[in-house]
Design a protein around this nucleic acid. Sequence first.
DNA 1: GACCTGCTGATTTTT
DNA 2: TCAGCAGGTC
Length: 750
Amino acid sequence: MDIEDRIFSIIKSLNPPQQEATTVVNGPVQVIAGAGSGKTRVLTTRIAHLIYSGVEPSEILALTFTNKASKEMTARIGQILNYQAANRIWAGTFHSIFARILRYEAEYLNYPRDFTIYDQEDSNSLIKQIIKDLKLSIMDITPASIHGVISRVKNDMVFVDEYKNIASTSFEKVVAQVYEEYQNRLRENKAMDFDDLLLNTLVLFTQFPDVLKEYQDRFRYILVDEFQDTNRPQYRIIWNLAKAHSNLFVVGDDAQSIYRWRGAEIKNILNFLKDFPAAKQIRLEQNYRSTSTILNAANSLIVNNPNQIKKNLWTNNESGNKIDVIDADDDNTEASLIANKIMQLIKQDIKYSDIAILYRTNAQSLLLERSLRTYNVPYQIFGGLSFYQRKEIKDVIGYLRLLVNKNDSVSLLRVINEPPRGIGKTSLDHIMEYASKNRFSLFDAMSNSNEIQALQARAKITTKNFTETIHRYSEQLEDSTLEDVVPAFLEATGIFQMYKEIDTREMTERWQNIEQLVNDIILFGKDNPNQSISDYLQQISLLTDFDTKEFEGNKIAMMTLHTAKGLEFPVVFIAGMEKGLFPIIRSKNSKEEEEEERRLFYVGITRAEKRLFLTYAKRRARFGEYTYQSPSNFLYEIDINFLNWSDSRKKAPSFSQSPNDFYSKSAKPNFKPNTPKPNIYADKPHSDNYSQISDESTYKLGDIVMHSYFGEGKISAINGQGQSLKLTIDFKSVGRKQIMAAYAKLERFK
DNA sequence: GACCTGCTGATTTTT
DNA sequence: TCAGCAGGTC
């Protein structure tokens, strides 16, 4: 089959809206693509068709949400056309593509080409340093929380000067101070954080029209995947690039927007039609993925979100099994019930690799893992700490970063005493004082350590040796291969020796990981003789765990619901369907946040093709303390006709399910009139639910108490005595909970 | 300056 | 519950 036949046989197999979306070549197009409606197929076929129609691959910019998605897209296009063409497409994440552009154009922004990209951890340690240096006394505020605010502010495109003006509370004023210093130091360190990659690209395009023009001409065709999750700077960048030719194609689904907390604006979908009034709107509403039971269940859930674009997602697929809702006595039991169920499924000819377990928080994976191991179920976890975020790897990368960017003080501070070389807190204080007094970078101050009077003779020698080593190897790097320089340099720093010893002593795999990294670098050098170590470093700084891991062999996949976006599995388990955990409790449970949680659940449900299991535990250990959980209100929102609630519900927990009248605002499940409330406790009248023997000496009915985690609540029942004294408390934050008084840190409210 | 220990706060989600 | 860190000791 030649290329033409291949493309047209694919196009012929598409439904009419899909065909339109793939073959309209010019002009703005907005596709609202429901879950499982063949979005990826449309994207790849469209790009193949564009190239077939005469568009140069290098004129196409395809932005995806993960590196993995872009790799897969490129691979598929390669299969249809050829790999040379596919590899010339500019495909990648926003962050990776713009990092690449910023590298080319760095001098416009007064940055060196080899600028360093700071990840979250790097940013946090820089902020920690700033807090210390500015002597800010802020109790209860962590560097991470300040960075969170700064990141949010940056995503809203509020620059330092503006933020300083609008900061009103004392906390905001502190943030403003840190924000200003943070940006200064990023610049001094010749570094950008993740948000800067977007903001600086925007600055580049808006302040240098010639540069913008160049990229407008280069990217004559732009495609954006997961458009609902773009934030403001991302949208502005796309808009700037596309306004010259308007060949902008965006695909998204407002019902799957789950990154609002990171600044994503669903509004962008609506703005699109304002900014590109000529845009064609195409809806993909036929779902090819799931059984009608699963799809309709998802639909019955998502109608509870009032604000959404109207669509009618339907399927021709068979109705299939009902959705199993499994309740477990506690979190351990939940994990083993899942493992058991999986083993049953395996006997029915389902492969491990057909199954995924999804959960709300990474912390949940621990118990699940333990139980899968007990039952010998092979699994693979995606997400969480990526290879490149491991301590030993970050240490090595810290050294390598110094080779290309000596101004990177975050990396310098990270490695200066790793392995211990006698430069501790006191010496560092002297060096930093000298650096700031003379407006030197930390590295330059160390190079001049002879001039620092306060410094001990020994420290002077060590710092001098240290900086000389860096100098020597960074010079070598200019005319030698990575293979020749990198291992020798790392050996010279002593970091190899240190981890070899740790590995033998503590039976860890750290040295192995380092070997793997060094091999990877050497391979990179061989495969890309024209690229430098700084190319390598930039590339890996934007990789997540999910990007680096392949689905391997016959194993179950485990990941958070967020990570699961864009994937599909024949069998899906969603664990931890409990109030407080999913939807998760936050300090302020706003309507918007609940709607986002609901969309997240929607994403989870629609990952399943054939079978879906929803599990919850009645008792779960959180923060080392067991609490009684009630089923998630989301479970009641799904049309009961699609559910098969497990039999053990008859052994109902000994407390009432009814939402509390005076307290909980969010605890009240949103029942649709056509969805009868599953009265799962029908065989237990309310009044029998708890005996009211109160331990007069400590707690009384109606007492207002403070819980360390759930906050304020009112005691509505008291059960048991002494060690097994159980309190039923209506919390403002999570509604009704049962608490073991002996374990909970409760404070009486006067 | 390195090492030990007791305390505290963490559990959203990620480029 | 537990990891990471501040503060103290050698």
